[in-house]
Nucleic acid binder design. Sequence first.
DNA 1: TTGAACTTTCAAAACTTATTGAAAATTATT
DNA 2: AATAATTTTCAATAAGTTTTGAAAGTTCAA
Lengths: 168, 168
Amino acid sequence: MKLPEAKAQFIQAWGLLGAQWGVNRTMAQIHALLLIAPDPMSAEEIMEALDISRGNANMNVRELMNWGIVEKVLVPGERKEFFIAEKDIWKAGTAIARERKKRELDPILKVLVQLNKVEGDQKDKHVKAFRETMQNIQKFAHQTDAALNAFIKSEEHWFYSTLLKVIR
Amino acid sequence: MKLPEAKAQFIQAWGLLGAQWGVNRTMAQIHALLLIAPDPMSAEEIMEALDISRGNANMNVRELMNWGIVEKVLVPGERKEFFIAEKDIWKAGTAIARERKKRELDPILKVLVQLNKVEGDQKDKHVKAFRETMQNIQKFAHQTDAALNAFIKSEEHWFYSTLLKVIR
DNA sequence: TTGAACTTTCAAAACTTATTGAAAATTATT
DNA sequence: AATAATTTTCAATAAGTTTTGAAAGTTCAA
């Protein structure tokens, strides 16, 4: 396979993967594009490469910066802004995990804690079933939360070498 | 908080969480409803509880069964079909992980392996950047895949007790 | 200041995904 | 075999999300 085809395939696959996990397809594609770019890219270049509008490029680049996986760089002598992606995929992965946990998981965890306090007669099977489900979910969620925090804070080598030793 | 309000909040929160992770909102809500139901529910009851159409209920219940987290049960003396959710949230979690990995992660892994074989001069910085990115992603993906497989196959107690010992 | 280069915003349009509901198919009952 | 109960399908439609592009805003050099 030649490079241009390979690039196109990668961008497409990354976009698809993102979409399936609730990430805007274009955002994932811009990320893919920057991941394989040897040099910083301008908004123009991104627009051209993916055939998208200026507004779309702007919004999604900004969102990638909010997630902490893309940053602006200034190229000396150029007025335009250029962008690069965090190339260390481990760092990108932990940044994404951190951000999604903060935005999505944490709020739900709060709700679950509240719901545990539901009033009612323990003899009522509806109350009983509800309480039991809440307790199970909360336990599971807290354990998962702990594991995720470890992932987010960890250094690649330490985390995987230890984890893999344990799970084999 | 009273039970009906708590139920409604839980169903809403679960639906929201699902949607953010690329799961059909209604599917997640039906799952939530069945999780807290003390008895098996019929299609009618689900339609009524969530105020959705028959077709919608049918499709999403079927999908939940495909995922292996809901099953049909036959209530003696009743002609209708009834449904229950897997109440052990650990089992549901591993089932979901297994299914999404199979449907989404595995295909991408295959593509990545292909893309590693891109032709071209290693001196070309475009080729070099592309190859390096592919290799990094592949390494990361394989490690994550291994961790996920361990999670999927594991028994709750063993997995978390060991993992938590390691990450503290 | 002015104005050219560039970035950001946002209402409207395009596109994608989810839902409805009535008809077709299936299954059980008499 | 006819009928009744129930489930499934799917074309039409509704709802939700993303994208566009032109206008407004910003920055900077002269």
